[in-house]
Design a binder for these strands. Structure first.
Lengths: 118, 118
DNA sequence: TTACAAGTTAGAGTTAACTCTAAGTCAACT
DNA sequence: AGTTGACTTAGAGTTAACTCTAACTTGTAA
């Protein structure tokens, strides 16, 4: 799969994909005979997981930590699991907080509806 | 209330508070005789609301739009209410998305626990 | 009254995450 | 064979949201 197809499939611009690769988030991407990138289905799965981590607020530097452990192979499975567990807890806390914010926002809107806000 | 007390109360650094004021997010802050800022309880309420909007992902530029309407007085009540309603919907969508991400993350962790991940 | 902590401003510097430019090479179609 | 669009790299530029520096003034406690 070439750059364009991969880019459209995963929803990241070619600029961003090269940037991710340069910083080490996307390793050993295959090249065809003329030096152009040739992405695989495994790359699709991996980048989608990266996007999920990013969309749940994990900074790229932390995702990179995970990626480096992954590149080291199965001896890092436990450490990676710990990172994900930790991230899961952070995410749960984030969702709780956002639910509180939502409640407060609804109360504020209620005040507007009661014309109690100038 | 002076800079230090206000800063500690709302949890934003003096740098950030001056920055917010400079960009128009915090208007007509009172000054004492020697030119130092003298924050009121109304300022506390307002900045806390600003922080809530920010923490729910609203960019400062949008918060500034709301702040400008607020500064125009009661003739903008309806428009402000619309903005908040819209933001509420965005927030609900965001929470839904995060709940999906959480589920996917838990499934991934489950795979780790089953030793199905290398 | 002498420190020293806290306040002021304008403007420069930082960080994360892109996003683009320049200068070229490669691929596909007519 | 020529045009057009996609690809390559290194490195520069952008944006949001701070964060700090310099140079100075004010407030408080010993």
């Amino acid at each position: 799969m070439n750059m364009k197809a991969f880019s459209e499939l995963v929803g990241l611009s070619p600029y961003t994909l090269r940037y991710y690769e340069k910083m080490g988030l996307l390793n050993k991407v295959q090249r065809n005979t003329s030096g152009h990138r040739d992405y695989t289905n495994k790359d699709v799965d991996w980048i989608n997981f990266v996007i999920r981590l990013k969309d749940t607020g994990m900074p790229l530097s932390n995702i990179l930590d995970y990626a480096k452990l992954r590149a080291l192979g199965s001896c890092t499975v436990e450490e990676r699991q710990d990172l994900l567990e930790q991230h899961k807890e952070n995410l749960k806390a984030h969702i709780e907080l956002q639910l509180n914010h939502l409640k407060a926002l609804e109360e504020k809107i209620f005040l507007y509806k009661q014309k109690k806000v100038s």
